[in-house]
């Protein structure tokens, strides 16, 4: 019994971990799938989400309602994303990939310094802590083990969003336009639809998802400069394993990697990092397009 309940808790831990990964990776994946841009700065947008959440809670006195923060912080990051696409990225869609990498890398540095300038300020608290809402700050009992209720909330948010994103892309009219923009750009243009605008909006949506990941992670992981760079590598692994551009793939990959990470630490701590890279190697060898990968241009 003790053993079984341990495993249940562990699986739940893994899922929680996976939800954060998924929320960040989903935005990265959508942007790549539709616009065909590898956005290195996605981690910085995640960081911005966390800092906006901090700012809204502490500076603007949104203290009363955590959920308001959870909606507004990602929206603000979405706006940053829109601006980033409109001002910078749309000028280099035709440029070689490494130029896009350079530009998004530049954006990382800029965002990093802006965050330091705005929130670093006086006092050396570079780590900003965001309190979870009071009713989610305790834990619930699961098979005799304490499990933070905020983690359950995270799991709920993650799966609801996964479902919503799937519905939005596969079932809604906007989704079909987005899919068309990825594969039938010329046709869409000919039909009089503003593809450029769709690109901008998709990028904004990707940024919004990254920001949401950040805002949701802030009460657990706190907000600090550099948090974006830490997650971006794992998110790239999720996107590669799941298949570039596939949102469902990102979910599956995040869930697998979440479990690997957690059980790796539980059983073979010294090698926990290895498993994830091993998984990536195996996937790249046998399914180079990733678990749910499609050919480029076939969204």
């Amino acid at each position: 019994m003790g053993e079984l309940s341990n495993i249940v808790i562990q699986v739940l831990n893994g899922i929680t971990f996976a939800m954060f990964l998924y929320l960040i990776a989903a935005g990265l994946s959508i942007v790549f799938g539709v616009i065909n841009i590898v956005n290195f700065a996605h981690g910085s947008l995640y960081m911005l989400g966390a800092f906006f959440a901090y700012g809204l809670v502490h500076k603007l006195n949104f203290t009363g309602n955590f959920f308001v923060t959870l909606i507004f912080a990602p929206l603000l990051v979405g706006l940053v994303g829109l601006a980033m696409e409109y001002v910078l990225l749309r000028r280099i869609y035709k440029a070689p990939h490494f130029l896009q990498l350079l530009m998004t890398y530049g954006v990382i540095l800029v965002i990093q310094d802006v965050v330091k300038y705005v929130w670093g300020g006086l006092g050396e608290e570079f780590v900003k802590s965001v309190p979870p809402p009071p009713f989610l700050s305790k834990s619930v009992d699961i098979l005799g083990h304490p499990f933070p209720s905020y983690y359950l909330f995270t799991i709920f948010c993650g799966f609801s969003l996964a479902f919503f994103i799937w519905w939005f892309i596969e079932r809604s009219r906007w989704g079909s336009l987005i899919r068309a923009a990825a594969s039938q750009k010329e046709m869409l243009n000919a039909l009089g639809i503003n593809v450029k605008m769709i690109y901008t909006l998709v990028f904004g949506l990707g940024a919004l998802l990254g920001g949401l990941g950040g805002a949701l992670a802030a009460p657990v992981r706190a907000a600090y400069p550099g948090m974006g760079v830490e997650v971006i590598v794992e998110c790239f692994i999720v996107v590669v394993v799941g298949g570039l551009g596939s949102v469902q793939g990102a979910l599956a990959a995040a869930l697998i990697i979440g479990q690997l990470e957690v059980s790796g630490i539980m059983f073979l701590e010294e090698f926990s990092m290895v498993f994830i890279y091993l998984l990536m190697v195996v996937v790249l060898l046998y399914k180079p397009r990733g678990l749910f990968g499609k050919k480029v241009g076939e969204y």
Binding site: N6, I9, Q10, N13, T16, F17, F20, H145, P146, Y151, A217, V220, R221, G226, M227, E230, V231, E261, V262, I265, M266, E269, M273
Partner: peptide, 20 residues
């Protein structure tokens, strides 16, 4: 002994190991 890497974003599995 538990040795998470420097700047680990998620300590939960380690916390569970301590509880165990």
């Amino acid at each position: 002994e538990l040795w998470p890497k420097l700047m680990t974003p998620d300590f939960t599995p380690f916390i569970n190991k301590i509880l165990e």
